[in-house]
Amino acid sequence: MTPNELKDNFRELMAINPPLKEIEELFFKAVESGALNYEDEEQDSYRTVKIIYHAILSKMADAWLPLLKCNHKEAKNLKKFL
């Protein structure tokens, strides 16, 4: 596979599974969950937003873990370079 073919495959995957849509859905689920205490936070605070974003990305990462265990090591190694 060439770098351009790899880029095309990535773009196709993003089109099939748009991450922004999933992020938005998980954000609203987080807000509606009742698990957050943000009422007393300052308006310009990003503390809760960062907590939500971290939880969302962690959940998405778990969902997209490579199916084959032999690919887990490669994914973990690549993460070091990002």
Rank of each mutant, 00 (worst) to 15 (best):
Y38T: 08
H72N: 05
A61R: 03
N77F: 09
N9F: 08
K29E: 13
E32H: 13
D62K: 10
E39G: 15
K7A: 15
F27E: 00
F28S: 02
A75S: 14
K50E: 02
A75I: 02
Y53V: 00
K80H: 08
M1V: 03
A15K: 13
Q43D: 13
K76P: 00
Q43N: 10
D8K: 08
E12V: 04
W64M: 08
E22I: 02
R11S: 12
C70Y: 13
N17T: 07
F27R: 04
R11D: 15
F10S: 12
P18N: 10
L68P: 01
S58R: 01
R47A: 15
A15D: 11
P66E: 04
F10W: 06
F10K: 08
G34F: 12
R11H: 11
T48L: 04
N37P: 01
L36V: 05
L67D: 05
A30Q: 13
N37H: 14
L57E: 11
Q43C: 04
M14N: 03
K73N: 04
I16D: 03
A75M: 12
R11E: 14
I51P: 00
I52P: 00
A55Y: 10
P18W: 04
N37F: 06
F81E: 02
I16H: 02
D44S: 10
I23Q: 02
N17P: 01
K29M: 10
N4V: 01
